[in-house]
Design a protein around this nucleic acid. Sequence first.
DNA 1: GCCCTTTCTTATCTTTTGTTATTTTCTTCT
DNA 2: AGAAGAAAATAACAAAAGATAAGAAAGGGC
Lengths: 190, 190
Amino acid sequence: MFDQFRERFPLLNHKWDEYIDLYHRIEVPAKTILLKEGETSNKAYMIEKGCLRAWFYRKDKDITFQFFFENEGISSTESFRKRIPSFITIETLEPSVLHWISKDNLDKIMEETMEIPEMRKWMMDILFERQAHYMHQFLSLIRDTPTERYLSLIKDKPHILQRVPQQYIASYLGITPVSLSRIRKKVSGH
Amino acid sequence: MFDQFRERFPLLNHKWDEYIDLYHRIEVPAKTILLKEGETSNKAYMIEKGCLRAWFYRKDKDITFQFFFENEGISSTESFRKRIPSFITIETLEPSVLHWISKDNLDKIMEETMEIPEMRKWMMDILFERQAHYMHQFLSLIRDTPTERYLSLIKDKPHILQRVPQQYIASYLGITPVSLSRIRKKVSGH
DNA sequence: GCCCTTTCTTATCTTTTGTTATTTTCTTCT
DNA sequence: AGAAGAAAATAACAAAAGATAAGAAAGGGC
């Protein structure tokens, strides 16, 4: 799962071995909570296999605000970065295979690799992409109707619909499960 | 306006002079369009005085998705970074004093300063903060009602309400001007 | 395969928002 | 200051979404 990095950058191979050794592989069942709202995150995860969601409570309902799949990284960004309590819970939706690394070790990797211009550029790209991702999410909410957002989801991220229970998708779209069910009926040719 | 940077970082003073010379000061009236939807951005701006908004068309209505004030930087991020057409228009709301720099020059500054660990850390912080900003915007839209969002705006960013016409705030909240007017009436004690 | 639990759908009613049009208030410009 | 234009408030109606409850469908565990 880390071969993509190894191939991509001209860092000496043994350095990659060293870094990859700092990751720990774990297998966990569905509905495993990796980080609880209020706790301070000190692990970042890479997903080898499976699917996770990040969510939080709001008036005794849970609101999902992001899904994660294979080859993506996941952490409670602000909590992990600033060592403050997380406002989200991270939970597996399927049995998953994950690789985690501690904050201290990741910081160490960062410090070293950020000296290398190429790695730096790569890191910046990732940060800009993530910023753009959230910006477009925000934009879609002020611009589109729930029906339009559902249709975009079908078009752009069909894998989410296939693997994630509908109730979680509803809150991700900013609506109730009942409303999503109505929209689904409407768009499937009344 | 650049003194904040000069004081903050131990870069030799003459380096700052050199960088600051790459900025051009301009004074523009209200409703000046600095970048038009579809054009490729090659300038980034710093705001010395005034107030701007970023917006785009949607079904012949304009939708505002961000406001900018004194001491903030503004550009069509993706357009500027990737040299692709911008999907937003940038426009002054008040007569403003701005400082702009070309992409080439800013790239040059970046390349040099990113070698310095302290500057790098600062840059990373900025990128993370911006990511967190959009994330929270997104979150607020799937979590809160328009009324709640309006109340947060009063509480957290009262300066926006004081300086920006209501119709623009409405689309920023994801609702119509009529609806915002109703909400205002409701929360001001029926 | 069967039971139990969870998830999804459907129905009804209430509340909120959108739409369109009109009136009132506020700005701006000469 | 006064006129013209822009912005905001209001009204009336339509459309959409929330809340709650009940029944149908699906999925997991044994």
